[in-house]
Structures are given as structure tokens and as C-alpha cells.
Design a protein around this nucleic acid. Structure first.
Lengths: 229, 229
DNA sequence: ATCGTAAATGAACGGCATTCATTTAGTGGT
DNA sequence: ACCACTAAATGAATGCCGTTCATTTACGAT
């Protein structure tokens, strides 16, 4: 039976709250840039776990299905975010500084940007550059720098890819827990490794991920430098 | 109305098929090794997209919920698979061959194994070694090799991490589409990059991913070799 | 004026990992 | 020999999630 105070059911009655607007709005409230910005903000606040199409729609005050008028999938949104983030990577030094300095600042900033966005790495790694204009612009700036520095034309892409692979792998490394190499109760059966880990802990001023990144990056810079004509 | 030939509903009647067995089986049909093997086989057949707990259970002739008596999550299964795969990585050369040769064969086999399993990389990269005994065994073999080769104790872990980061990043690279760098209609605005890609295509006998991996790996081997005491 | 279309809604769908009450059959203790 | 305990299965249910679709509406062009 109905609650005593409730009015009888009437499908046509007016609610206290006005009906939510439906249909074409006065001006479009959504576009790809707005979606990208909202996505980036949501990811910053809730991480990639909390980043769902429903949550994204909520921050935009819109129904989830409305998003699909502007993007074709969640992956699409991730691509937009990825491309936007790439514009934060520092390529400025390829214009003024010497080649090795430029590579260094490029690589460090690239790693730093994506170490906070490792879930994008599987997306980037297989994404055609056509779908990511800002990323393409980065490649242009970097390869122009390599070219100007006298790098053999046929090796430029390979060298960039090698550096990029190292950068992506190292971005994961940044997010690893500090005690990831603690062998715990199995220390007895792994004496060499356990000793190496202990020694590293003793010597390390900097964060282990930074030491490893520096080591690999300098190796590549040194060796690739000898390839310049 | 019921179909003419159907018997009246009777909750106690015996079906033609015997009731599915419920409750404790004569002998346990599941264990972690069996789950790991089945998971690996399923991934091989259906890829990581087709790899669901329901599908895994189906291949084992078991209800999905039964899996949770032996693993605590899907991630758990992925960890088991990851650890198993690591035993396919070749560390044998650290015992007989010179250091640089050993690193080479280790790195190539490591990359080859996980290039077919890139969805595991985010799992490995942050996984405490305690949870992956075979992975820990690999680290022991590798760090023993570095130690025997006269590598300074405090740098061994950093060097391995740098190599590993490069390996993981390069594993993604293997899976990238061949025309990933085709700049298409934007070629005009990226002359340097477009030229570099074209030149690479002309010169390349080997697969681009292999050229890049070789380039980076040899850079690291050469540089790290100079650190040995 | 009218017509087409862009852009919103909300209901529905299928799939996913995971949880839970329940059932059963071995195991170990008395 | 009996009983209590527990390991290991079932299947129903839960709560998300990404995505689709019919429907509604208002702007802009003809």
C-alpha cells in the first residue's frame, strides 16, 4: 500500500524539481578538448582506477552516453590524454644546446611525465603517429636535432626508438615499491643478489630508479655520440 | 501453456542427465600449477583479451568460483604465469661464456619471451621478487654473473634494472604495427622525421624493432663493460 | 516555415571479476 | 566406528564497466 502522505501515482504530474533537459542544448557543452582536460583532471584526482567513462561524464555534468558523440571509445580518450601530455615533454634544448645536453633533458622530462601515467604506455607504444599530432611534433623536433648534430640519416629513427623504449621501461621503474628487491625468507638461496641489493642500499644517495635511469641513459648518449658524422 | 509433450513441472523428478557433482571431489582437480598451465595455454590460443576467469575455468571444466579456492584474484594468476615464463629466459651463458656474450643472450631471450606477453609487463615491473621465486632465481644467476665479471657490487642492481627497463620497453616495440611511423597527410609539416623514416625503410634488412634493440643493447654492454674492475 | 542534423538523455545489454551460502567427501581425533 | 572439521566444488547473485540505441530537442541551412 502507498505511504499515507504520498500523492496517487500520476505519470503526468510535475515534480518539484524541473525535468532534466533533454535534446540539443543551446550550445554544445562537450568537445574533445574539454573531454581531454576533464580526463586529465580526473586522472590526477582519482588515478587510472577511478577513471571510468561514468566518472568522466559526471565531472562534465553529462550522461555517459553523451561522451560517445565526441569520442568513439575509452581508448580514444586515453589517446587524447596521451597526446596532450606529450606536449609537456621538453624538446626546447634541441635548438640551442649541444646534442648530448638536449637528449638528456628530453629523456628525463619524457620519463618524468609518463612515470605518473604508466597505464598509457601500452597505448602509446603501438599508436600510429597519425593519431597523435603533438607526439608527431615531438618526433619532428627530436629528429631535427639528431640530423643537425650529424647523425646518420638511416639510424635516427632506430636511435630514438631505442631511447624511447628505455624511457618507457624506466617510467614503470619509478612506480615500483621501494622494497621490491627484498628477497625476504629466500635470501639464503640467493646470496649474490641479496648482497648486491644490500650494497646498493648502502651506497645510494639518490633514488634507485634515478641511478639506473642515469646509468642507462648516459651509456646510450655516450655510444650514440660516436655515431655522429 | 506448456508444450504438449512436456511432463508437468516436478522439482524432484530426475533429469535425463545426471546432476552435476557438487561438493568435495574424490581428488582435488585444481592446483596452482594446473591453473598456471591452463592459463598459459588459454593465453596462447585466445590472447589476453580472451583470457577471463570464466574462460579459464571453462578450460579446466570447473566453475569460475572454484578458481578462488587456489588463487585470490586474476592478478594472482597473471603473477603465476609471469613467473613461469621467466624460467624460459636464458641465463645459462653467465656460467661459461664471457660477460658481454652472456648479457647479450640473456637480454635477447628475455625480450623475446615477453614481447609475446606485454600485458604482463605492468605486473612484473612493480612485483616484489618475493612473490616470484623463479624470477628471483633469474636475478641471482644474472647478478652472480655480473659479480664474477668484476662488476662493482654497488652498481650491479642498477645495471640490471637499466637493462631490464630497456628490455621491457623494447618488448612493446616488437608488437607495434609496421607503419606506426607513417606520418600520412602530415608529412609536409614534419620534413626531418619523414625523411628519417624513409631512409630507415630503405636501409633496413632486419626488422626495425631488432635494429633498435641491438643499438641500445650494444650501447649498454659497451659502456657497462668499462665499469668492470 | 520546414527539414535535417548535432548533441543530449536514460534505459538496456552483455560481460567482467568477485563473493557467498550451500553441498559434499575425505581426514583426523576419540 | 563415529563424529567433527575442513577442503574444494557449485551456482546464484552482486556491482561495475564500456557501449549501444531509440528518443528528444534546438540550432542552422534551404
Amino acid at each position: 500500500m502507498p505511504a499515507p502522505t504520498s500523492a496517487p501515482a500520476d505519470p503526468h504530474r510535475h515534480d518539484a524539481k524541473p525535468r532534466r533537459r533533454v535534446g540539443r542544448p543551446a550550445a554544445a557543452v562537450l568537445d574533445q578538448d574539454g573531454i581531454t582536460a576533464a580526463a586529465l583532471q580526473l586522472i590526477g584526482k582519482s588515478g587510472y582506477d577511478g577513471f571510468t567513462m561514468a566518472a568522466l561524464a559526471r565531472t562534465l555534468n553529462v550522461a555517459p552516453s553523451a561522451l560517445y558523440n565526441h569520442v568513439s571509445s575509452k581508448r580514444d580518450v586515453l589517446v587524447l590524454v596521451q597526446d596532450h601530455l606529450t606536449s609537456f615533454v621538453d624538446v626546447s634544448n634541441f635548438e640551442a644546446e649541444p646534442w648530448d645536453q638536449a637528449v638528456r633533458s628530453w629523456a628525463w622530462s619524457y620519463r618524468d611525465v609518463f612515470s605518473k601515467h604508466t597505464p598509457l604506455i601500452p597505448v602509446i607504444a603501438v599508436l600510429p603517429v597519425t593519431d597523435a599530432p603533438k607526439t608527431l611534433a615531438m618526433y619532428e623536433a627530436v629528429s631535427a636535432g639528431f640530423s643537425r648534430a650529424g647523425f646518420p640519416q638511416g639510424l635516427i629513427v632506430s636511435a630514438i626508438v631505442a631511447l624511447e623504449s628505455f624511457i618507457f621501461g624506466s617510467a614503470y621503474d619509478v612506480t615500483a615499491p621501494a622494497d621490491i628487491f627484498d628477497s625476504g625468507s629466500m635470501a639464503d638461496s640467493t646470496p649474490n643478489f641479496t648482497a648486491a641489493v644490500k650494497q646498493q642500499d648502502l651506497e645510494g644517495y639518490d633514488k634507485p630508479a634515478d641511478v639506473a635511469f642515469n646509468l642507462g641513459l648516459e651509456a646510450m648518449i655516450a655510444r650514440f655520440g660516436t655515431l655522429r658524422g
